[in-house]
Amino acid sequence: MPDRCEVLPGDAVVARRGGGLLWVDAPGSPALVSALHACLGVSGPGADRVLAAVAGEVSSLASGGASFALVLTTDAGTGVALWAGKGQPAVDGVPVSGSSIEGGTLATGVSLGQSLYVGPGQSAPRTPPGVSYDLVEGTVPGGGATLHLAGAAPAAAAPVAAQSFSAGTDSGFGSGGASVSAAAARPESGEQTAFWRPESTDATPILRFDDGMVVTIDEDLVLGRRPDNHEMVSSGSARAVPIADTQNVLSSAHAALTRSGREVSLVDLGSLNGTHVAGPEATEWTQLEPGVAHPLSDGDRLLLGWTVITFEQPQD
C-alpha cells in the first residue's frame, strides 16, 4: 500500500487513489485532468486495454503539448503505466519503457519497487520540506511526484463484471465519449475486463464546469488556483479543488462552498477579482460580498475569474 506521496512544487496536478498515481501538466485543459483522474478507478487484468482506449480519447483533449503520466496497481508488485510528454515514470530511479500507442506510451507489467516517480526530468534527491502529502484520494498542485511504498503493492480490488468501457461528458472526455466492446477488451484467458465507471451522484449536489468537468460536493470545498494552502484545507475541514488558470485572474484560494444539510452556500474568500453568481435565467452577474455566505439554488451559475460553473442540486 502506498505509504506517502511527496509532491514537488509546481503548477502540475498530482492525484492518488489506492495504488494509482496521476501526474498532469496541462494548465489549459481541466478536462484532461478530469478524464485521467477518473481512470484511477480502473482495476483488474484488462487495465492495459482500457488505458489504450483512454489514450485515444486523451489525444483529442491534450492540445498544446500537455504532458501526463498515469500508473495503476494491477496485482502484487506490478502495475500499468500510461504517459505522454515529459511525465515519464521512473521506478527506483530507472525510467519505465513501453510501447507507443495513439495518444501516448503504454507499459504493462511494471515492477513498482519501493519508489515511483512521475514528472519532468529526474526525481529530486531530497523533497523540500512542507510538500509531503498522505493522499488517499484527491488532487494537489506539484511539479512532480514521488510515491513511496511501505511494502509490495497490494492486489487491486477484484473487478466487477462489466459489458463495456464508456465515458461521457461528466467524466471530462467530451460529448462524443468512447467505448470499447467487451469482446474486444476481454483477455483471451477469459479474465474479466478492467472497467471504469463514475461514482453515483444521484443524491449529491455537483459543480459542472464549462469544459465538462464535474466535481461532487460531498464535503466543503475550497476553489482557486492553489487552494491546498488555505486553512480550511490544511485543517481537514474542506477539500481543495484546483482550477486551471492561464490568465492569472484567480486567487490562490478564491471561493468556498459550504454544506449544511442539503443547503450549499458560496462564499468569496477575499479574492482579488471577486466571485460572481447568477440565476439560471439571469442576464447579469451579482458580485458577492467577501465572507458572506450566499445560498445556492439548482441551476445557479458561478463565475470565478473566467471560469463558469453551474451548481446542480438533485431533486428528492
Rank of each mutant, 00 (worst) to 15 (best):
V249W: 06
S34D: 15
E6W: 02
P154H: 03
D300M: 12
P125I: 09
S100V: 10
H230Q: 01
A150V: 02
D298L: 06
V233K: 00
P295A: 05
S100R: 10
P141R: 04
T286I: 10
S171A: 15
V91A: 08
S179Y: 07
T216Q: 10
D298Y: 04
V180Q: 10
A156W: 01
H254S: 04
L207Y: 02
R226D: 11
H230L: 06
L266W: 01
P30S: 04
P290S: 11
D210S: 15
L296C: 04
V180T: 13
D220G: 04
S234I: 07
A145H: 03
V14D: 03
A153K: 03
L257Q: 04
E6R: 05
V215W: 06
T108V: 14
S235A: 10
V110Q: 13
R16V: 11
S60W: 05
L51W: 09
G104R: 06
A184D: 15
I101T: 10
G224H: 02
G103N: 07
A240T: 02
L272Y: 13
A35G: 12
S99K: 08
A253C: 11
A124F: 14
M232E: 01
Q247D: 14
A81K: 00
E284V: 15
T73G: 14
P2E: 08
F311Y: 04
F195R: 07
A293V: 12
S60T: 07
V160S: 07
S181N: 07
G143P: 05
E199W: 05
G85Y: 00
R262K: 15
A153D: 05
S265G: 09
S123K: 07
A278V: 09
G190I: 15
L296Y: 00
H230A: 06
R197T: 15
L221P: 01
A255K: 00
S175E: 09
G190Y: 14
T283W: 00
F165V: 15
S60V: 02
S297A: 14
V91I: 15
L257R: 01
P89I: 03
D170C: 10
S181G: 13
H294V: 12
G299W: 01
T204D: 08
A185H: 07
D25F: 01
G261T: 12
V215P: 03
R225W: 10
I243T: 04
A256Q: 00
G19Q: 11
S100Q: 04
P198M: 01
L22P: 02
A203S: 12
E289T: 14
V292M: 08
S171K: 09
L269R: 00
D268R: 02
S115T: 13
L207I: 02
A38N: 08
S252K: 07
A145Q: 06
S100L: 06
G291I: 12
Q163G: 14
G190S: 14
E57T: 13
E6D: 12
D220L: 04
S166I: 06
P154I: 09
G279L: 09
